[in-house]
Design a protein around this nucleic acid. Structure first.
Lengths: 146, 146
DNA sequence: GTGCCTCTTTAGAACTATTCTAAATCTTGA
DNA sequence: TCAAGATTTAGAATAGTTCTAAAGAGGCAC
């Protein structure tokens, strides 16, 4: 493992957490690592399972607490693609989620620069955008046709 | 009440339902009416409460069943704006939801014609778009400043 | 360094939204 | 009219999340 990168990552985490009034903890590090490592939009439950491998004593409630702290610190995003579990995403750029309704996979795509040029309700103060496209990924669309 | 419009509405409902293999029922009519009438993106629970006024014996499970049938028939949309309850929307045009994080209100805005011109994953077959902007509505943004 | 205050973690209970189940009822078509 | 299938109902079950209370850890004042 690249120790330099790891330390930089940890400094970034500590700094962002403390700016939002949170402490650095090994549990938060662990949850953050899980999400940064396999960037597949896991649910809280999936994060819990993966975090347990590194830190077997971590609890369910802690994972929720950590995810919440990371979201509030602007380190990860939460996305609500369908009924059911919230998913978490390490990509903080404005982007669009392509969600396959058959296999559940999620694909990130960058958005064109001007995409936020849409009419707004008068006086609305926009904070963040959630853009999702639901449909079938190439693999699943192929299977359906056959 | 305009009986002509009501009948047209009912014909539309019956036709759309049967095209998707569902029967017309008074419960489905009632749930549909609730959503068409006060177009404020209610949750299933809110729909239940309002439908009960017209039809006191309607059950929770039936409301979910009806909402599901209406969504599958393309008569309403379901939107997932945040953690928690799904909301339902009678606006079938492609539009964007402006969601106020303080008061919970949702504002529909039409989308520019070319908004779907965004890069897609290769071979992705898009079915529908969910575009949400989270922030503060004019009223709530004003209150925060003071 | 010690003590105190606050933040964090933990296990488990509680809660909310939704789905499932089984029985009763209604519709439709033969 | 009857049978088959769809729908409704109340209530149980489930999934995802939040809450609670107690224990543990970190940091600051003294």
């Amino acid at each position: 493992m690249n120790l330099g990168a790891h330390n930089k990552n940890e400094r970034h985490l500590t700094e962002k957490l403390s700016t939002s009034g949170f402490r650095f903890t090994p549990q938060r590090q662990s949850v953050y690592d899980v999400i940064m490592h396999k960037r597949d939009h896991p649910t809280a439950e999936e994060v819990f399972i993966r975090a347990k491998k590194q830190m077997p004593e971590i609890s369910h409630a802690t994972v929720y607490n950590c995810l919440d702290a990371l979201v509030k610190s602007g380190l990860i995003r939460q996305v609500q693609l369908e009924r059911g579990a919230t998913r978490f995403c390490p990509n903080m750029e404005e982007h669009c989620h392509y969600h396959c309704g058959a296999c559940g996979k999620v694909f990130d795509m960058a958005l064109p620069k001007n995409f936020t040029d849409m009419p707004q309700p008068k006086g609305f103060k926009a904070d963040h955008y959630d853009i999702a496209v639901h449909g079938l990924c190439a693999d699943c669309a192929g299977k359906r046709k056959n």
